[in-house]
Design a protein around this nucleic acid. Structure first.
Length: 176
DNA sequence: ACGATGATGAAC
DNA sequence: TTCATCATCGTA
């Protein structure tokens, strides 16, 4: 099974638009001859320096610099001493934004996603493309907008009353 | 409900 | 160089 590889143009839009449209796409990983693929079911958007929940809020640092670059690159970072988080950079160069991939079909939670796909920090700053071994495909899955729930982000209480309540989490719910 | 576990960034 | 914090998860 294969689909159309998603390219930069898709990612170079407003981060919430990219986030919503990532639901139903497939995350694909190649390791040697083996392919791992699963449909994306949950994501979160992080939108600019103004977003108090975003790593970019405190400005450019060694860790988050890829967020300030062009769209379509991976941002992978380590948290809580044990988990890798997978994000893809969105929007224009100079505008720091990204989408966190929180879940795929059968795998719930961002730390579990990276474990399942064997993703670590070595992917950070690499492009989402076949050449990097990690990319996203459109496999034609039909996802109705009404099946996508927009809810608050997880683990961002530190962002304050306004930014922690933004409905920047997109969850595919085919039970509704 | 809570501890694991270590990189990161800011303060000193 | 020290320290608090952290876009989480497994076990209880």
């Amino acid at each position: 099974m294969q689909g159309r590889v998603i390219t930069k143009k898709f990612f170079n839009r407003q981060t919430c638009v990219v986030a919503e449209n990532l639901i139903g796409k497939y995350l694909v990983r190649r390791r040697g001859r083996k392919i791992i693929a699963a449909m994306i079911t949950e994501v979160e958007a992080y939108d600019g320096v103004k977003d108090r929940a975003s790593h970019a809020h405190k400005g450019r640092t060694e860790r988050n610099k890829v967020m300030f670059g062009p769209a379509g690159f991976w941002y992978v970072y380590f948290v809580y001493g044990m988990h890798w988080m997978l994000n893809v950079v969105t929007g224009d160069r100079g505008y720091p934004a990204a989408v966190l991939i929180r879940g795929v079909q059968g795998v719930s939670g961002p730390g579990r996603v990276t474990k399942f796909f064997h993703i670590n920090g070595s992917f950070s700053e690499k492009p989402s493309a076949k050449a990097s071994g990690l990319w996203i495909e459109d496999r034609g899955a039909a996802v109705e907008k009404s099946a996508i729930k927009k809810i608050t982000r997880i683990g961002v209480a530190y962002a304050g009353p306004v930014w922690s309540k933004k409905k920047y989490r997109f969850l595919y719910d085919n039970k509704s």
